[in-house]
Simulated assay, not measured.
Amino acid sequence: MKQVLISGAAGFIGSHLCDKFLEEGFYVVGLDNFITGSPKNIEHLLERKKFEFIKHDITLPIKFHSKKIDLVLHFACPASPVDYLKFPLETMKVNSIGTLNMLEIAKKYNSKYIFASTSEVYGDPTVHPQTESYLGNVNPVGPRSVYDESKRFSEAISMSYFREYGLDTRIIRIFNTYGPRMKANDGRVVPNFITQALNMDNITVYGNGNQTRSFCYISDLIDGIFKITSADNLKGEIMNLGNPEEYNILDLAKIIIEKTSSKSQIIFKALPEDDPKQRCPEITKIKKLTKWQPETSLKEGIDLTIDYFKNHI
């Protein structure tokens, strides 16, 4: 039986990964310290015989007595602006010391190592859409740097292990993902708008609302991650993972108001520092290497996410 180790297992993406790998017959070991993850995201798994959970901060050493770990998935990290600005030092530690610790585990067991990077490594891009070869336009000392620069460091050290030790390292640059198990107070645009709309509060749009994002539904993302872990000949590859359909933020707000039949009004506030104006993945590479492509439309995914939030706020 194959065994996978997943850091950030109680997080939004991490918990869905636990579900997926259990469905695929893996023995799953999940790690999380609950700094931003929620025990509720994995409580349905705790009685599963093939699931083991360890509450642990991966910036601290940990030893495993397993004979083998086939896959190491490093997904632990505060991922929303609300969280990484609340926990700036913890964010930098998990993307430096934590990354090093997870790489050492992968090296010890000669595991495939999958690192969850982010579209934030591109910063406020001057190239559109963003390809994996684009080096980014990132402010190294701005408030968001605790997240985007630490993710860039994690990419650098992951590639160093690939070059120095031949470790099968694969880096996924994840673009805006949404769906069930996001927190209502997450701070990202989809849960923000849905929560405000369902509560009949004003919907807060930053800037003029013309900035764009590309939204990938969680089931599509998980399918893409699984394909990346399963495919051959991806050693050392860096891949964008997201839905290339692009929407401006104001249109997203209007879609959510319509779908929730909300009486909310749209109000505008100042754009946060270093907030990117455009964000859209070029996914030719991953489509070619894994045959993956997103299947869930924004309107379908928003319906599913609204249904979830109706029962969780």
Rank of each mutant, 00 (worst) to 15 (best):
A156M: 12
T126A: 13
P125I: 05
E155W: 02
S133Q: 12
I35A: 11
K108N: 14
E164T: 12
F75C: 14
T59V: 15
Y165N: 14
Y122E: 03
D124T: 11
M159N: 12
D124E: 13
M159Q: 15
R48I: 01
V94K: 03
T99H: 06
V82R: 14
I157A: 03
K86A: 09
S145V: 06
K107E: 08
T131N: 13
Y161K: 03
D148S: 15
Y84T: 04
D83K: 10
I97S: 09
S150V: 09
D148V: 07
P140R: 10
M159H: 13
Y165D: 13
F75V: 14
A156G: 11
H56K: 13
H128C: 07
K55W: 06
P88L: 04
L89E: 12
K151D: 00
V94S: 00
K107A: 01
K112C: 03
M159I: 13
K86Y: 04
I35E: 12
T59W: 01
I62A: 04
I35N: 10
Y122H: 07
T91V: 09
E149F: 06
P39Y: 10
N139R: 11
R144V: 08
T91R: 01
C77K: 02
M92F: 09
N110G: 10
L89R: 10
F51C: 00
I35T: 15
R144E: 08
R48K: 15
T131Q: 13
S158L: 11
R152I: 06
Y134H: 07
S66V: 12
K93Q: 15
L85E: 09
S111D: 03
Y134T: 06
R144W: 09
N139Q: 12
L103I: 04
T118Y: 03
T131C: 12
Y165Q: 09
K63M: 11
H128M: 11
T36M: 03
L85Q: 11
A76W: 00
Y113P: 01
I97V: 15
K86H: 08
L89Y: 12
S160W: 14
H44W: 14
P61W: 05
S66W: 15
K68C: 12
K67S: 14
V72E: 03
K86G: 02
R144S: 13
V141P: 05
A106V: 06
I54D: 01
N139V: 06
F87I: 06
S111F: 02
Y84I: 09
T91C: 07
F53P: 00
Y84P: 05
S96V: 06
I69P: 01
Y134L: 08
D83N: 14
K63S: 14
T59L: 06
V146Y: 10
G98N: 04
